[in-house]
């Protein structure tokens, strides 16, 4: 088989992942895109391993490691996202700009007063029929109500 096929497929998948990472707003979607990038790399590794007929099978071993690390990464990443969502009522990463340089005019960073705008979008994000009833969302709703 032509080595260019898997190589090109891997490149394209990687770039699709890059696009997702850069363009997606929801943190979980970003994580998915990261998975795509990792998989592209895995494909590359496997293809080259098979091509080289490596006696150590370094490519496949590394792929297994990557998959394991990806599993660990997704677990931790999701835990972080859930925590952020629980505390902020949103998992939009372009809203998580707590590290931004505060403007000289404004009184505080974007995350300080729990900004009313945040609460509004949190309500928008909620499914019309209130999909989940986890404590996290209850808490977020309570917060929204309290500030409203």
């Amino acid at each position: 088989m032509h080595l260019a096929y898997p190589a090109v497929l891997a490149s394209l998948l990687f770039c699709v992942g890059v696009y997702g990472v850069l363009a997606r707003r929801n943190a979980i979607l970003v994580l998915m895109s990261v998975e795509l990038m990792l998989n592209a790399v895995n494909l590359n590794l496997v293809a080259f391993d098979v091509w080289l007929r490596d006696t150590l099978h370094a490519g496949q071993a590394l792929t297994l490691f990557t998959i394991t690390i990806a599993a660990a990464e997704i677990g931790l990443g999701l835990a972080i996202v859930l925590l952020v969502y629980r505390n902020r009522g949103s998992s939009d990463i372009d809203r998580l700009t707590g590290l931004a340089e505060p403007r000289p005019g404004s009184s505080g960073g974007p995350l300080v007063p729990g900004a009313a705008a945040d609460e509004d979008t949190a309500d928008e994000n909620a499914t019309p029929h209130g999909t989940t009833d986890t404590k996290a969302t209850e808490k977020a709703n309570e917060k929204a109500e309290a500030s409203a």
Binding site: V21, L22, A23, I93, T97, A100, E101, P110
Partner: peptide, 11 residues
Amino acid sequence: RAQTGNVQTYL
């Protein structure tokens, strides 16, 4: 001024 806090911009 470049520090917007938006990770995606940095990336």
